[in-house]
């Protein structure tokens, strides 16, 4: 292709403009900053209300261990919601995977097979969701609601509603241990969040996830296999539910059909608080992480102060409403400029 404008050639050598990138533009930064403010505020409240215990290493440890499993689920949910979908089934899939990987038959094969089994069950369930939604043209809400019910049922059936104790010491030693003074579970959360951030912001997969959520028809016309992409997004969410199952089996030293109960709601709440639009096409991984931490901190503050869980849930509900209203404001302010 010939250059027509003599100035054009020079321009290609001009160094990168330092302008902010699209999905992390001004408004998103402002939003993240305000979220971060809420996080700092909660830390202050925690510190003021229980000055002796809150800012200790062991409490930090507790908070992060608590945040780790639900945080991993929320990373998967971030992709699903950015792609314009919803996944109600992840909590049940966590339960199913944790049961499947801890049956006596599976445990007999040793820790490696247990982990692979947990991940495979999660991935499989996620792909079933994805195929039903993308190729079966089912609404995501319905397809994953069906999975939500039947995965929990299958977990109860497999476990006979019994708690299955993890007997493998190697498994427990590794996942309940520490590395460089940081619990393995927290390492897993950190790795998943960083990998999730890279996948979302630095790969074609992430780019296309935004595109599918922003305008599926235009994405299709740009030559992207939208159906396959949607199936993969749910597969990813399922896989991460599998990771969570492994983490929970280690933390609770058991597999149970009640593992992961209500995780889907916590995950959706964290993602929404984090500024990801339920309509798809917009969202950030950092926001999700902050959302998860905000939720965990609230729980911790209530526990530290011996307050009842009912009140805790009221506070959580209020936080969701406030976060979404704030986003609504920033969005509107933005569209009028």
């Amino acid at each position: 292709m010939t250059q027509l404008d003599p100035a054009a050639k020079r321009d290609t050598d001009v160094p990168e403009a330092p302008a902010p990138r699209a999905n992390r533009g001004f408004s998103v930064d402002m939003r993240l900053a305000s979220l971060f403010g809420v996080l700092v505020l909660l830390i202050l409240i925690g510190w003021i209300t229980s000055p002796d215990n809150f800012l200790t290493g062991s409490n930090l440890d507790t908070i992060l261990r608590l945040a780790a499993p639900s945080g991993v689920v929320a990373v998967g949910m971030t992709f699903v919601i950015i792609s314009g979908g919803i996944d109600l089934s992840v909590g049940s899939v966590v339960g199913l995977a944790s049961v499947w990987m801890t049956t006596l038959a599976t445990q007999a094969y040793g820790p490696f097979v247990m982990v692979v089994c947990g991940l495979a069950v999660g991935l499989g369930a996620g792909l079933v969701n994805g195929v039903l939604i993308a190729y079966g043209r089912m609404v995501a809400f319905i397809a994953t609601l069906a999975m939500y019910i039947s995965a929990r049922g299958l977990a109860e059936y497999l476990s006979n509603k019994q708690t299955q104790v993890v007997r493998d010491q190697d498994f427990l030693t590794f996942f309940r241990g520490e590395f460089l003074g940081v619990p393995t579970l927290v390492w897993i959360l950190a790795i998943v969040v960083v990998a999730g951030w890279i996948l979302l912001n630095r790969t074609t997969f992430g780019r296309r996830t935004f595109a599918v959520g922003g305008n599926p028809e235009a994405t299709r016309l740009a030559g992207i296999n939208v159906k396959r992409h949607i199936a993969m997004v749910y597969g990813l969410a399922g896989l991460l539910a599998g990771v969570t199952a492994v983490m929970l089996a280690a933390r609770t030293t058991a597999g149970s059909s009640t593992n992961g109960m209500f995780y889907e709601l916590d995950a959706i709440a964290a993602v929404v608080i984090g500024g990801t639009a339920l309509t798809g096409g917009r969202g950030t991984m950092v926001g999700t992480l902050i959302g998860v931490l905000i939720f965990t901190l609230i729980t911790n503050i209530f526990v530290q102060n011996n307050l009842p869980t009912e009140v805790q849930n009221i506070a959580k509900g209020a936080i969701i409403v406030i976060a979404v209203l704030l986003q609504f404001r920033t969005n509107r302010a933005r569209s009028t400029t």
Partner: peptide, 15 residues
């Protein structure tokens, strides 16, 4: 046929 939430460059090379 553009994706409003993506940047100019991302839209140009989408797909």
């Amino acid at each position: 046929d553009l994706i409003p939430g993506l940047s100019v460059a991302d839209n140009i090379f989408l797909g």
